[in-house]
Nucleic acid binder design. Structure first.
Length: 329
DNA sequence: AAGTCCTCCAACCGCCAAATC
DNA sequence: CGATTTGGCGGTTGGAGGACT
């Protein structure tokens, strides 16, 4: 037996709510409450609406203290940080933003904030040349960081396997000569833009792609007392035989909490425009929207969402804890 | 002025898990 | 303990209105 419909679809009104309907619903709930039963509520309130529709109207529009209008910069940061840590869990985000509804946040993200992040991603100067052979991420495989020496001055335990993140993702190959041939070190303080020009440009012998200097690969490195965040962004552009341009970029980001010997968010993605047969060669992975969202998460995780990386990261850590409380207690 | 495209957001849909029968 | 009901959630849609041609 299939599931019964929540209401008589033929006898309920759909579409925008009239002021009269709003008034009836508001008056009823303010007088009687919801009674713990949204399905029965519309009949009692004299509304020809589905109970679910009433609930949504109340929660998203009619209930007291709903905040409408522009999102503030602070709210942007909260959304960015939470998106980076928990993804599209709009109801949890709404719990962190008094007066905002999950629907509001979802709409705001989908229509404005996501584009803002994508624009930042495309225009960020550190998306430059690359590129190294990628291999599909396999959660049963123990991966290592691209070059052990990169982390020689850091607190990262390079011998521990990377943990898997969600959904389709890719890791940089550990066979990349342009990484392995360099002696790299994490700077004691975050790399500044001025540093970019002081480091060697790498050449990938097999594909002729220009690489980038090791230090700039680790812009956004934040080595605080408890947390290390690192990011890698790379890109290339080449001409195809048919005259079209082939643009590619890939990125990786990670967070390492050495209080708990815990790594998370290690993930890479790879995106291409105008390519043809490179996929078969394993040069890049997912080019779907999911990939873009992953990139946005990486972007946020590294440094672009806030002008103050310290504050942003502190917030990031605290909010993650708060989310855990909400979810499990 | 008219047609088309784009953006925004309220509302709907379908799935899932918890509660209830 | 399985079936059914309900609430809650995230994804998606459709229409209104503004921008552009």
């Amino acid at each position: 037996m299939g599931r019964a419909p929540c209401c008589d679809k033929a006898n309920v009104k759909k579409g925008p709510w009239s002021p009269e309907e709003d008034r009836k619903l508001k008056d009823y709930i303010e007088t009687h409450g919801t009674g713990g039963n949204w399905i029965a509520l519309p009949q009692k309130a004299g509304l020809r609406r589905c109970g679910k529709s009433c609930r949504l109207r109340w929660l998203n529009y009619l209930r007291p203290n709903i905040k409408h209008g522009e999102f503030s910069d602070d709210e942007d940061k909260v959304i960015c940080a939470l998106f980076a840590s928990i993804g599209s869990r709009w109801s949890i985000m709404a719990a962190q933003l008094p007066g905002r509804t999950d629907n509001d946040i979802k709409n705001y993200w989908n229509t404005k904030l996501k584009k803002k992040m994508m624009n930042s991603l495309i225009s960020m100067p550190e998306i430059r040349k690359p590129l190294h052979r990628l291999q599909p991420f396999n959660s049963s495989t123990n991966y290592s960081y691209p070059s052990l020496s990169i982390f020689q001055n850091s607190n990262i335990n390079v011998n521990a396997p990377l943990s898997s993140s969600s959904s389709p993702s890719y890791l940089y190959s550990t066979n990349t000569s342009s990484y392995h041939d360099q002696t790299l070190s994490i700077p004691s303080s975050p790399t500044t833009n001025a540093d970019h020009h002081q480091h060697p440009v790498l050449q990938s012998q097999d594909h002729g792609y220009l690489g980038m200097g090791p230090m700039e690969s680790y812009q956004g490195v934040k080595d605080g007392p408890n947390l290390v965040v690192f990011g890698v962004d790379q890109a290339s552009c080449s001409s195809n035989s048919d005259g079209s341009c082939h643009y590619e970029y890939g990125s990786a980001a990670g967070v390492y909490d050495h209080r708990n010997n815990l790594r998370n968010l290690q993930r890479d993605s790879y995106k291409e425009f105008g390519g043809n047969d490179d996929k078969e060669k394993g040069y890049y992975g997912d080019s779907s929207l999911d990939s873009s969202l992953e990139e946005i998460k990486q972007l946020i995780s590294t440094n672009l969402c806030s002008s103050n990386i310290d504050n942003n990261l502190n917030f990031f850590v605290d909010e993650t804890k708060e989310v855990e409380k909400i979810m499990y207690y």
